[in-house]
Amino acid sequence: MYPLARSFLFCLDAERAHHLGLKALDMAHRGGALPLLGAPPAPMPVRVFDLDFPNPVGLAAGLDKNGAHIDALMALGFGFVEIGTVTPRAQPGNPRPRMFRLAQHQAIVNRLGFNNDGVDALVRNVERAQRRGGLLGINIGKNKDTPNEEAAADYLHCLQRVYPLADYITVNISSPNTAGLRELQEEQALRQLIGTLREAQEALGARHGKRVPMLVKLAPDLSDNDIDAVARVLGDLAVDGVVATNTTVSRMGVESHRHAHEAGGLSGAPLMGQSTKVLRRLRARLPQEIPLVGVGGILSGADAVAKMAAGASLVQCYTGLIYRGPELIGECVEAIRRRRYAPSRGPVAPE
């Protein structure tokens, strides 16, 4: 059914289609019609961050910013669903239009700008969710009008609010759509921010009687020297994991498209090579006990396998789900399963 639904949705403005698609997904879930979109994958348990995931394929942050569709998304068969990015206070994001399809490239440009209803609304939604199936990650950020020198307070507020409810938490310092945010990836700023959050994480663990893993999400546009510096800081601070990567400001490979000039982050197939390159370099420089989540450009099972071959323990998709539909989830799980249980194999090169 998904190709028919996609044909209709692609006739609409991208952001309107986004909201309509989520509403339709909720209705299908409540009406028991989700199997029409395809059967969820067979279990493939993996243990990462001291958590047990039903399978290693997850949904990246950004699709469900407010955590309003958790149960329907989990019912598609994801091993984990990451909601957010959420900020302390509600904010509208950037002016519309702010999402653009580059269909022939299987890509999207967005400059949404952390549009969300605020962390209190997200907490209420999570508390109502039944959360059957996969694990839940919550992605946190700062408000647009919060200067970087005060960013830690925003991240701390969100961390404290979502800590009791999350299976893991991701610190987003890599979106290109909040002015200055990526400056928090600079070595000294990163050490100060993540050091502060690590201290809070340990205190919250003692208070709540459980340790919730904290991951850091990075940009694909870092130079090799910047990647090395980031890996050094995150290794020193012993973060629980790294998500590689967010969207890119590059337009390499899509320069001729009519939407290539639009400001924002590019996701989808053109991101695959660069995001996997960053993933591979991080794996070579981070301590082995820090797992990586590979995201960016996954539109097939082969892409998911390439991320695993580059060093990922888990993978996430988002834009691929828009273009391929829920069948992509099972395809990725099965491709990773075949790779894991192949009797003999050489290195799997990214495509």
Score class of each variant (00 low, 15 high):
residue 1 M to R: 10
residue 1 M to L: 10
residue 2 Y to D: 11
residue 4 L to M: 13
residue 4 L to Y: 13
residue 4 L to T: 14
residue 4 L to N: 12
residue 4 L to R: 14
residue 5 A to M: 15
residue 5 A to N: 09
residue 5 A to K: 07
residue 5 A to V: 15
residue 5 A to T: 14
residue 5 A to S: 14
residue 6 R to N: 08
residue 6 R to P: 00
residue 8 F to P: 12
residue 9 L to T: 10
residue 9 L to F: 11
residue 10 F to N: 12
residue 10 F to R: 11
residue 11 C to G: 14
residue 11 C to S: 15
residue 11 C to P: 04
residue 11 C to K: 15
residue 11 C to E: 15
residue 13 D to P: 11
residue 13 D to H: 08
residue 13 D to Y: 05
residue 14 A to K: 07
residue 14 A to E: 13
residue 14 A to T: 09
residue 14 A to W: 04
residue 15 E to I: 03
residue 15 E to R: 01
residue 15 E to A: 07
residue 16 R to M: 15
residue 16 R to H: 14
residue 16 R to L: 14
residue 16 R to V: 15
residue 17 A to N: 12
residue 17 A to K: 10
residue 18 H to Q: 09
residue 19 H to W: 10
residue 19 H to G: 12
residue 19 H to C: 11
residue 20 L to K: 10
residue 20 L to R: 13
residue 20 L to F: 12
residue 20 L to A: 13
residue 20 L to S: 09
residue 21 G to N: 08
residue 21 G to P: 11
residue 21 G to V: 07
residue 22 L to W: 02
residue 22 L to A: 03
residue 22 L to C: 01
residue 22 L to Q: 02
residue 22 L to I: 02
residue 23 K to V: 11
residue 23 K to E: 15
residue 23 K to Q: 15
residue 24 A to H: 10
residue 24 A to P: 08
residue 24 A to T: 12
residue 24 A to E: 07
residue 24 A to K: 06
residue 24 A to Q: 11
residue 26 D to W: 02
residue 26 D to A: 07
residue 26 D to V: 04
residue 26 D to R: 11
residue 27 M to K: 12
residue 27 M to I: 14
residue 27 M to V: 14
residue 28 A to K: 04
residue 28 A to Y: 08
residue 28 A to F: 07
residue 29 H to Y: 11
residue 29 H to W: 09
residue 29 H to K: 05
residue 31 G to E: 07
residue 32 G to Y: 02
residue 33 A to Q: 09
residue 33 A to F: 07
residue 33 A to G: 06
residue 33 A to P: 00
residue 34 L to N: 00
residue 34 L to R: 00
residue 34 L to T: 02
residue 34 L to S: 00
residue 34 L to A: 00
residue 34 L to W: 00
residue 36 L to A: 11
residue 36 L to P: 01
residue 37 L to Q: 03
residue 37 L to Y: 03
residue 38 G to N: 06
residue 38 G to R: 05
residue 38 G to V: 03
residue 38 G to P: 02
residue 38 G to E: 05
residue 39 A to I: 00
residue 40 P to T: 07
residue 40 P to I: 02
residue 40 P to S: 08
residue 40 P to R: 03
residue 40 P to H: 01
residue 41 P to N: 05
residue 41 P to R: 03
residue 41 P to Q: 09
residue 41 P to T: 06
residue 42 A to C: 00
residue 43 P to L: 02
residue 43 P to N: 02
residue 43 P to F: 00
